[in-house]
């Protein structure tokens, strides 16, 4: 464990807490893509299959439970909670996210480190996470002004994998036994690049203290 990895996990944790805070306190999920939340729940379900079979550290297990619990409770809020679900704008959240799942699954079957069920599912989760933010980014383009909490949520979610990239670079040079993980590295890089223009507009809006507005 290095500081970059810890910073990445804490940033990721902050993103789900910001989202839960938004939904739980103001009882609204306006501007949040349910499709992205569904994809993330699938990512965690596929990635953490080994949560009870392969104990790595207490930290890892606790964090996996937090990410699984938070992503499924966000789904519950957005689909079942009588007040929150009314603020979900399904007419705007139209990205056909099913078209992301199958290609990622096929790619995981073709390109993986080991052709076992758990490894293919883990690889599937890596590919899917790289594109899971797309419905949310499309929704942000549509909803003209983005509220602060939603902007912070997307920013933190994008930043966490960026910190993981620094963690991989650090481990590559610092840990002689650290082997190459091209699948994780390339997917993580693509994932972070998807946020590039969002980061640009978000940082500008924070710097100039103006509402975040993505160009149409």
């Amino acid at each position: 464990m290095n500081i970059f990895r810890l910073a990445g996990d804490m940033t990721h944790l902050m993103s789900v807490l910001v989202l839960l805070l938004k939904i739980h306190t103001i009882k609204s999920c306006a501007g949040i893509s349910l499709k992205t939340q569904e994809l993330y729940a699938l990512v965690f379900a596929a990635r953490y299959l080994d949560i009870f079979t392969h104990y790595y550290s207490l930290y890892n297990t606790v964090m996996k439970l937090i990410f699984l619990g938070s992503s499924f409770s966000i789904l519950w809020y957005m689909k079942r909670h009588k007040v929150v679900r009314r603020s979900y704008d399904k007419d705007q959240d139209t990205f056909r996210h099913h078209f992301l799942v199958l290609p990622c699954l096929v790619l995981a079957l073709l390109i993986n480190e080991k052709f076992t069920f758990k490894e293919v599912m883990w690889t599937f989760s890596i590919y899917l996470e790289a594109v899971a933010i797309l419905p949310q980014l499309v929704l942000l383009q549509r909803t003209r002004n983005v509220d602060n909490l939603t902007g912070q949520y997307v920013f933190l979610l994008g930043a966490y994998r960026g910190l993981y990239i620094i963690n991989w670079i650090y481990r590559y040079f610092a840990e002689p036994t650290y082997s190459t993980h091209w699948i994780t590295w390339i997917s993580g890089l693509l994932q972070t690049l998807l946020y590039a223009d969002f980061f640009y507009y978000y940082i500008n809006s924070v710097k100039n203290n103006v509402r975040l507005q993505l160009p149409a």
Binding site: D50, H54, Y56, N60, K114, T116, K118, E119
Partner: peptide
């Protein structure tokens, strides 16, 4: 069996 590729990250 060959050691499962242990994914030690989240």
């Amino acid at each position: 069996a060959e050691e499962e590729a242990d994914h030690d990250e989240l």
